[in-house]
Design a protein around this nucleic acid. Structure first.
Lengths: 344, 344
DNA sequence: TGCTTACGTGTAATCGATTCCATGGAATCG
DNA sequence: CGATTCCATGGAATCGATTACACGTAAGCA
């Protein structure tokens, strides 16, 4: 075991542990002589400070936590990567936790973080079963504990917690306008789970974009998925047999889109001919698809960075304003004019 | 702040902090009376034990660390998810670190973990620039510190560290045999970076699979990428203009495959007609592609679990044997007979 | 030269839990 | 009934760092 403590260093350098500590933590009140000596000895002995002891006394851990829904979803792994890089640049470690869209797992993670006394928390609030808008008891504990907290991607509106979110209204209006210009009127929506504010935001933005373009939103053309590939596949099958025969579809996230596109490929549906497709969340696979899929994308790198910056503000005692990033619509060949009542 | 300490609990329960500690950490020597009282009070006050203080004294953190190359690579995010789930089930938190294929970032992460006194480390050893096989100084420190350590996915053969790896030899022999049966002889290989043992393993398995099938491996048909999408795209372009006109290609990982397939789509190459494609790492996008892409896949969930289990063995003082998982070949429509010298 | 100011240093307290050790009372046994 | 064992409990030491406080020395100033 690594038994080298600061006392060993102090002893070997011929100073007290107080001086050794001051040198090693960059305290100004140290002489050049002891600085040199201590640093040399510390390096020589391979001294690694015990973070437990340090933060027990100083009440700082230089660690933040990020809670997301699923690392395997590229949307969140991009976000996690951005947060981690930014935090790293600021000298902080990041604990990444998976909630799997589950309040209980969220709460377990939060309890662990509370116990570890992280300096701050960035979280994608997880859905609550019945009352999606009420914070869990554990979240109330977090807030009561005074731990700096920032929401990212999703939010719980009733709490006054700084948040970084994305607005897709503008991008969707643009997207629907484009579809309308191509002759589409029956547009389906494969949505996410209602407990996620992101899913609700995307859904209502879709509805209002339809309205803004003078199109009817038919509840019968709305499918409620769960942001995962399997539910996208399910939605695609549901759509295949749909009596209203929509000519275009908007999908709420990339995994669902990949699931859906797989089903349509198997069914021989020609995307961009028989069916126009727009999906949220641009991932490389959308450009690989033939034809490439039109997307509504978020700048997750910027959002991740903004979340860390906002958290640093909170840690510094400030109250940063909520920030809303604007999504971007990118038209691609998955959009095409409606066909004069040919195939399926 | 959460100022509730065990002393507050003890005081309110009318016992000493020693007794309170015993109750809360499940020590057997406690009376039913004090147990009841302490537990009620702890819950009432919302007591959250300070993990720093606890592990400072007990030298356990109930935390392990996992170092991977890139969270955004689905291969590693699957692995991370599996490790995290398994560790969670065993009551341990997981620190996930990104090395970005960079020794320096790896070492920074390792230093932070050493300082935090994690109970164990699972790591995908990162490539060293010149001497890919020599452990970095920091890794030697880790080993010297006695921190339980397990390698996963890649390994540094000269160190006697338990490892969980995958062998693709069998799967590749099967794959090449299939290609040969379809008439292919000139098979290209878009490989990964040489500093990753995985890349070397896949490359040498490819060579030996070719030899086992009586085919020549032409170094001119080997492209050295870096496991990322951009290098896959580059490899695809390189192949397009290749004078040897290979009819089939094996790609070393999913991001590279996606990059390559995007280029081929843009170039109008018909996969499975003009070019047969096999890629390592099965991800959903490969099934979405038209035609679906044949893959060589690993069971990352099992590998992640095995890594945690092996680590637990090491923590218990045992020396688990190295474990090698066998990759699986799945033929799909991206493989087709060579065409009688038609198009490109 | 005498007095103040500044600075580097050491001693010891401290953070919040766990754990060793001693103790007193109840239970057990011959 | 007296002696021994058992067990729950409290006091105090401990983990390894940081830091408040006090002190001695050297520099600055009149």
């Amino acid at each position: 075991m690594n038994a080298v403590t600061i006392k060993d260093v102090a002893l070997a350098a011929g100073v007290s542990s107080a001086t050794a500590s001051r040198v090693l933590s960059g305290h100004p009140a140290t002489s050049a002589a002891s600085r040199e000596k201590v640093e040399a000895v510390a390096k020589d002995l391979g001294f690694v400070p015990n973070a437990q002891a340090r933060s027990l006394r100083s009440t700082k851990t230089d660690t933040i936590a990020l809670l997301i829904s699923d690392v395997r979803n590229p949307y969140f792994s991009d976000l996690a990567h951005a947060v981690e890089q930014q935090a790293h640049a600021a000298g902080m470690m990041t604990f990444i936790g998976n909630a799997n869209e589950d309040t209980e797992q969220q709460d377990q993670f939060l309890a662990a973080m509370l116990s570890r006394r992280v300096d701050g928390l960035i979280l994608v609030p997880q859905g609550l079963d019945e009352d999606a808008d009420r914070p869990s008891q554990m979240m109330q504990r977090i807030i009561a504990s005074g731990t700096p907290l920032v929401f990212v991607d999703r939010t719980l509106p009733e709490l006054r917690i700084p948040s970084i979110t994305a607005s897709s209204t503008g991008a969707l209006e643009e997207a629907i306008a484009r579809l309308k210009a191509l002759g589409h009127a029956k547009i389906a929506f494969l949505g996410g789970p209602d407990h996620a504010s992101t899913a609700r935001e995307r859904h209502s933005a879709f509805d209002s974009a339809m309205a803004a373009n003078g199109l009817d939103t038919d509840p019968a053309l709305h499918f409620a998925g769960d942001f995962r590939a399997a539910s996208g596949a399910e939605g695609a099958r549901w759509l295949l047999g749909h009596e209203l025969q929509p000519t275009a579809v908007v999908i709420a996230d990339a995994p669902m889109a990949i699931g859906a596109l797989t089903v349509w490929r198997e069914a021989g549906i020609r995307i961009g001919k028989q069916l126009s497709v727009i999906t949220f969340d641009e991932v490389d696979a959308m450009l690989m698809h033939d034809p490439p899929i039109a997307t509504i994308s978020h700048d997750l790198t910027s959002m991740g960075r903004a979340a860390v910056t906002a958290l640093q503000d909170v840690m510094a005692g400030k109250s940063p304003e909520p920030q809303e990033f604007i999504s971007r619509f990118t038209a691609r060949e998955s959009l095409a004019p409606t066909q004069p009542a040919t195939g399926a």
